[in-house]
Amino acid sequence: MRVRDLVTELGLEVIHEGDHMDDPVEGGYVGDLLSDVIASGRRNDVWLTIQSHENIIAVASLKDLAAIVLAKSTTPHDETILHAQREGVTLLRSNLTSYQLVARLAALGVSGDR
Protein backbone atom coordinates (compact mmCIF):
# COMPACT_ATOMS: atom_id res chain seq x y z
CA MET A 1 0.00 0.00 0.00
CA ARG A 2 1.32 3.43 -0.94
CA VAL A 3 0.92 6.62 1.07
CA ARG A 4 -1.44 7.85 -1.66
CA ASP A 5 -3.69 4.79 -1.14
CA LEU A 6 -3.81 5.46 2.62
CA VAL A 7 -4.96 9.01 1.97
CA THR A 8 -7.86 7.66 -0.08
CA GLU A 9 -8.75 4.73 2.17
CA LEU A 10 -8.69 6.74 5.41
CA GLY A 11 -9.96 10.02 3.96
CA LEU A 12 -6.86 11.88 5.16
CA GLU A 13 -6.34 15.57 4.58
CA VAL A 14 -3.14 16.31 2.67
CA ILE A 15 -1.46 19.29 4.33
CA HIS A 16 1.72 18.86 2.30
CA GLU A 17 2.26 16.18 -0.36
CA GLY A 18 6.02 16.05 0.05
CA ASP A 19 8.14 13.49 -1.76
CA HIS A 20 6.61 10.33 -0.36
CA MET A 21 3.08 9.95 -1.76
CA ASP A 22 4.12 6.94 -3.83
CA ASP A 23 6.32 5.36 -1.15
CA PRO A 24 5.22 1.97 0.18
CA VAL A 25 3.85 2.03 3.73
CA GLU A 26 5.65 -0.85 5.41
CA GLY A 27 4.58 -0.27 9.00
CA GLY A 28 3.51 2.30 11.50
CA TYR A 29 4.43 3.92 14.76
CA VAL A 30 2.46 5.93 17.31
CA GLY A 31 4.28 8.38 19.54
CA ASP A 32 4.30 11.89 20.93
CA LEU A 33 7.71 11.60 22.60
CA LEU A 34 10.29 12.49 19.99
CA SER A 35 13.04 10.45 21.68
CA ASP A 36 10.83 7.38 21.42
CA VAL A 37 10.07 7.91 17.75
CA ILE A 38 13.69 8.66 16.83
CA ALA A 39 14.72 5.41 18.55
CA SER A 40 11.92 3.15 17.28
CA GLY A 41 10.47 4.59 14.08
CA ARG A 42 11.51 2.71 10.95
CA ARG A 43 11.99 3.59 7.31
CA ASN A 44 8.64 3.75 5.46
CA ASP A 45 6.60 3.82 8.66
CA VAL A 46 3.55 6.04 8.85
CA TRP A 47 3.82 8.04 12.10
CA LEU A 48 0.70 8.97 14.06
CA THR A 49 1.11 11.85 16.50
CA ILE A 50 -0.59 14.82 18.09
CA GLN A 51 2.63 16.86 18.18
CA SER A 52 2.24 19.88 15.95
CA HIS A 53 5.56 21.74 16.16
CA GLU A 54 8.32 21.91 13.55
CA ASN A 55 10.66 19.38 15.19
CA ILE A 56 8.45 16.47 14.04
CA ILE A 57 9.58 17.20 10.47
CA ALA A 58 13.27 16.62 11.27
CA VAL A 59 12.39 13.33 12.96
CA ALA A 60 10.39 12.11 9.94
CA SER A 61 13.12 13.21 7.56
CA LEU A 62 15.98 11.66 9.56
CA LYS A 63 14.17 8.34 9.91
CA ASP A 64 12.94 8.26 6.29
CA LEU A 65 9.36 7.84 7.48
CA ALA A 66 6.70 7.51 4.79
CA ALA A 67 4.41 10.15 6.27
CA ILE A 68 3.30 11.95 9.39
CA VAL A 69 -0.41 11.75 10.19
CA LEU A 70 -1.57 14.39 12.66
CA ALA A 71 -4.33 12.70 14.64
CA LYS A 72 -7.37 14.28 16.30
CA SER A 73 -7.47 17.21 13.86
CA THR A 74 -4.22 18.57 15.29
CA THR A 75 -3.33 21.86 13.63
CA PRO A 76 0.34 22.12 12.65
CA HIS A 77 2.27 25.31 13.40
CA ASP A 78 3.06 27.45 10.35
CA GLU A 79 6.76 26.60 10.83
CA THR A 80 5.90 22.90 10.69
CA ILE A 81 4.36 23.30 7.24
CA LEU A 82 7.34 25.40 6.08
CA HIS A 83 9.75 22.72 7.31
CA ALA A 84 7.70 19.98 5.60
CA GLN A 85 7.95 21.93 2.34
CA ARG A 86 11.68 22.42 2.76
CA GLU A 87 12.37 18.78 3.66
CA GLY A 88 9.88 17.14 1.31
CA VAL A 89 8.12 15.43 4.21
CA THR A 90 4.57 14.20 3.58
CA LEU A 91 2.26 15.74 6.18
CA LEU A 92 -1.30 14.43 6.55
CA ARG A 93 -4.14 14.94 9.01
CA SER A 94 -7.18 13.07 10.30
CA ASN A 95 -10.02 13.84 12.67
CA LEU A 96 -9.66 10.31 14.10
CA THR A 97 -7.64 9.58 17.23
CA SER A 98 -4.33 7.72 17.02
CA TYR A 99 -6.05 4.60 18.35
CA GLN A 100 -8.82 4.75 15.73
CA LEU A 101 -6.22 5.27 13.01
CA VAL A 102 -4.21 2.25 14.17
CA ALA A 103 -7.36 0.09 14.05
CA ARG A 104 -8.07 1.21 10.50
CA LEU A 105 -4.46 0.78 9.41
CA ALA A 106 -4.41 -2.75 10.81
CA ALA A 107 -7.64 -3.56 8.95
CA LEU A 108 -5.91 -2.40 5.76
CA GLY A 109 -3.04 -4.78 6.43
CA VAL A 110 -0.52 -2.23 7.77
CA SER A 111 0.78 -3.92 10.88
CA GLY A 112 3.50 -2.96 13.33
CA ASP A 113 5.20 -6.33 12.76
CA ARG A 114 8.73 -6.31 11.41
Binding site: L33, L34, S35, D36, I38, A39, N55
Partner: peptide
Amino acid sequence: ERGFGAGLGLPNIKKT
Protein backbone atom coordinates in the same frame (compact mmCIF):
# COMPACT_ATOMS: atom_id res chain seq x y z
CA GLU B 1 4.92 19.63 25.87
CA ARG B 2 7.08 19.54 22.73
CA GLY B 3 7.70 15.84 23.25
CA PHE B 4 11.16 16.17 24.80
CA GLY B 5 12.47 15.76 28.31
CA ALA B 6 11.21 12.26 29.01
CA GLY B 7 14.60 11.32 30.42
CA LEU B 8 15.39 9.08 27.47
CA GLY B 9 18.17 11.06 25.77
CA LEU B 10 21.39 9.95 27.49
CA PRO B 11 20.09 6.38 28.13
CA ASN B 12 19.20 6.10 24.41
CA ILE B 13 22.69 7.28 23.44
CA LYS B 14 24.28 4.74 25.78
CA LYS B 15 22.08 1.88 24.54
CA THR B 16 22.60 2.69 20.88
